[in-house]
């Protein structure tokens, strides 16, 4: 029989995981997700330069294919502003200024949502369609998938904000072992300090959102300025 495990030991009485484990996991996941996202959009960067260099049938970018620089800049600026607000929110959270973090987080969410609305406005008012050449295809494809990634990240932000608002009146202390470890065996009512979930998620979100905003700036340079 083993020295390290026994079948009869109940799961509920084995030791708790260290509280910082979820933070570590989310931190590595945020970086890995950013790498995967980079490779995803690399395909669109490749498509842009490849089709531009081929210019098949001189249809890379017909004259009427000219998206609004104003709207594109606004979308990019709002995304960057949203990421910046989340970053400032992290600093507030670290300094135990929870009300300020919630305010900045909410503003970041609103900024991100406005960016998405403006992106829709741009598609509708662009004056060209997806079939209008290589550039139009890359433009529509890149921005459409970017919106999906932004939506996913805003969903993550909303999760953290919703928890922060729901438990805004409970004091936040040092989490107990197992408390914020992300242990899937724990049920909702086991978790005495749900704010620990926010604590571990916010740093990772901030990194990923800043990375995605950076990709937004890259998209803006490639699609509007070059």
């Amino acid at each position: 029989m083993s020295d390290v495990a026994h079948p009869a030991t109940e799961y509920s009485i084995v030791e708790g995981e260290p509280p910082e484990l979820m933070g570590r996991n989310l931190n590595s996941a945020g970086h890995l997700l950013a790498s995967a996202t980079a490779f995803f959009f690399l395909a669109f960067v490749f498509a842009y330069f490849y089709l531009r260099s081929l210019n098949n049938d001189h249809l890379w970018r017909p004259k009427h294919v000219d998206p609004s620089l104003t709207l594109g800049t606004l979308v990019m600026a709002l995304t960057v502003a949203s990421a910046l607000l989340v970053r400032l929110g992290v600093l507030d959270h670290r300094a135990a200024r929870r009300a300020q973090w919630r305010l900045k987080g909410a503003l970041a969410l609103v900024a991100g949502l406005i960016a998405i609305v403006l992106q829709f406005v741009e598609w509708v008012s662009a004056g060209f369609g997806p079939a209008d050449g290589g550039y139009a295809s890359v433009f529509i494809g890149w921005t459409a998938f970017n919106v999906l990634f932004v939506l996913g990240t805003l969903f993550w932000l909303e999760n953290l904000l919703a928890t922060a608002f729901r438990y805004r009146r409970i004091p936040s202390g040092a989490p107990a072992p197992g408390e914020a470890s992300g242990d899937a065996g724990r049920l909702g009512h086991d978790i005495a300090d749900p704010l620990s979930l926010v604590r571990s998620g916010l740093e990772s979100l901030s990194f990923y959102w800043a990375f995605l905003a950076g990709l937004g700036v890259l998209a803006w340079i490639v699609l509007y300025l070059i």
Partner: peptide, 25 residues
């Protein structure tokens, strides 16, 4: 996933990523 997304857009939204007569390849 990205290249399949492009193929899906070609087949649904009428983009021309892979259609030479539409500026694609």
């Amino acid at each position: 996933i990205a290249v399949l997304g492009m193929a899906m857009l070609d087949r649904t939204a009428q983009t021309t990523f892979f259609i030479p007569s539409g500026g694609g390849s």
